[in-house]
Design a protein around this nucleic acid. Structure first.
Length: 533
DNA sequence: CAGTGAGCGAGCTTCCGCTTGACTT
């Protein structure tokens, strides 16, 4: 019998099923030891010597593992294929050596890139040794976090009454929130005008066109600054004749987004359902651990703390099959789609978050789930299946219109788009979070039939006054997105970091927006002025 | 003589990242 150590108990169960009775798969439940939370856990003057402590819960796990190893033929360390996973294997091995239960039994390190039978069996057949540089990277990361946090926090206690903590991640996150607040306070709103004309085609259809040039000059966005300018242009248009200069129809393709990671799931659940980051994670955890479906407990989704966007080949095949069955063959693209991550620091130890079985539609599992679970599962199922569906085909029509009034000329433009084939949109479309600008003015509808040199009748000229708006405050979701871009924090800590900031009363969440408290701004100002690199 | 209060000193807080239950409220 061989012992296999993984991190999560839910995974242990599945993997044991794949490996059979010749193996005993045990979970470490994450890290098994850590630096004691007191002075002197890292000694910079003694070559950064670190002392480790096993807490009581971990001691129990380690005893179980040691007992199993004692009566085994060998040990497979199968913790996650990332920096922290490598470290957990290293810690477990070190503790087992200290317990003297290994003897000369073979010890192997294996990594599973997906929890499928094939991936697990392949991995078991191709073991390696512990990756020492990766463990060193962990040791440096751990020492640094300790040294920063446990030196900086006490300075705050002494100098800023009420301030309680600082750290590599939380202080940067806090600064992002504070910097945004300052930006909003400094923001000076500017006036601008938009001008458009409601026009009628010879066939009697009305549509709206936007003023884009005047006197032979292109009007940039927000180029019309004053009401006087707007009135002058409006007067020009009021007395003008209109003729269609060109009509151009262009096919455009739109591709689906990759399946969810922790960060994108938190963003989507926030903008669509108003879930906070912790609520999303709690519900996802339940779906991952398993739901009782007619007497059988099944995990409905893959692991929910991940920065990977890739799916197991078996899952891609299953998705393509399900797309064919549920949407039709036209919706299955010729080739499977492969995604790669853009996030800094991504370790891609796990697959993207996807349904474990694409055949289990939200409708089928509806009656076994509570409201939150159903909504989140539906979101994950749709985004997952959409990620392997055909592109949407859109025809975008651009109509350029010439307005002439005596010797004065102006140009107007109308843009419309028609979905020729909906493709992945049949399952899922992205939604902007409130406050975000749509990037390409994609909200236009369809245009009536229009031909070149058509004369158009002016119905009405609209001039509307606007003011530029300050950037929006961060939401939980948009801050997490920013942190991921910057490589601050990890999927397992995004929600926890936000909770720390509000527990310390550095920030407060008001209508789902993050507003810094005076205490938070003080801490940020203090750190900025005294601890700048 | 007993109760009050000024003044002093000791002890506490804290990081990030990986996992779930075992606890309260």
């Amino acid at each position: 019998m061989n012992v296999v150590v993984v991190e999560s108990p839910a995974k242990a169960k599945t993997i044991n099923k794949y490996l059979g009775s010749g193996y005993k798969v045990l979970a470490s439940f994450g890290h098994v030891r850590d630096l004691p939370a007191k002075d002197g856990s890292v000694l910079p003057d003694q070559d950064f010597e670190m002392s480790w402590e096993v807490d009581s819960a971990s001691a129990k796990r380690m005893k179980d593992i040691a007992d199993a190893v004692k009566s085994s033929d060998g040990l497979f360390l199968a913790t996650d294929p990332d920096r922290e996973g490598e470290a957990i294997s290293w810690h477990v091995l070190d503790l087992l050596k200290k317990k003297r239960v290994l003897g000369d039994k073979p010890v192997k390190r294996v990594v599973f890139n997906a929890i499928t039978k094939k991936a697990v069996l392949d991995a078991m057949a191709n073991p390696r040794d512990i990756d020492v540089p990766l463990v060193d990277a962990y040791l440096a990361r751990r020492a640094l976090d300790y040294l920063v946090g446990f030196n900086l926090s006490p300075v705050l206690w002494r100098k800023l009454p009420g301030a309680r903590s600082a750290g590599r991640v939380q202080s940067v996150a806090l600064r992002l929130v504070c910097d945004r607040e300052s930006e909003i306070e400094r923001f000076v709103s500017e006036e601008y005008w938009n001008i458009s004309a409601l026009l009628k085609t010879p066939r009697g259809d009305e549509f709206e066109a936007r003023l884009v040039s005047a006197d032979g000059k292109r009007l940039q966005n927000r180029a019309i600054k004053t009401g006087d300018d707007a009135n002058r242009l409006k007067a020009l248009l009021e007395g003008a004749t209109y003729v269609v200069d060109s009509v151009e129809a262009k096919p455009v393709k739109r591709n689906p987004s990759p399946p969810f990671t922790t960060s994108t799931l938190q963003q989507a659940a926030s903008s669509r359902m108003g879930f906070g980051a912790s609520r999303t994670m709690q519900v996802a955890q339940k779906l991952y651990e398993g739901i009782d479906i007619g007497g059988e407990t099944v995990g409905l989704i893959t692991y929910m703390r991940t920065d990977g966007v890739q799916m197991a080949p078996e899952a891609i095949d299953a998705a393509r099959k399900a797309i064919g069955e549920q949407f039709g063959d036209r919706y299955v693209p010729e080739k499977a789609r492969f995604y790669s991550t853009k996030a800094k620091n991504a370790q891609e130890a796990h697959e993207a978050i996807r349904p474990t079985d694409f055949n289990r539609t939200p409708d089928q599992v509806k009656r076994y789930l509570d409201a939150d679970q159903l909504r989140l599962y539906e979101l994950i199922w749709k985004r997952g299946i959409a990620s392997q569906m055909a592109s949407a085909e859109i025809e975008r029509t651009t109509v350029e219109i010439l307005a002439s009034n005596g010797g004065e000329k102006a140009g107007l433009r109308a843009v419309g788009s028609v979905i020729r084939f909906d493709g992945f949109i049949a399952a899922y479309t992205d939604q902007k979070e409130d406050g975000e600008q749509s990037d390409d003015g994609d909200d236009e509808g369809r245009l009536p039939p229009i031909n070149e040199r058509d004369n158009l009748a002016k119905q009405k000229i609209n001039a509307s006054q606007h003011f530029t708006e300050p950037p929006p405050r961060y939401s939980e979701a948009s801050l997490i997105k920013k942190m991921e871009e910057l490589g601050i924090g990890r999927p397992s800590t995004y929600a926890a970091t936000l909770k720390t900031l509000s527990d310390r009363e550095y920030i407060v969440i008001d209508k789902r927006k993050l507003v810094p408290h005076s205490r938070g701004r003080l801490v940020t100002a203090f750190l900025e002025s005294f601890f700048t690199a």
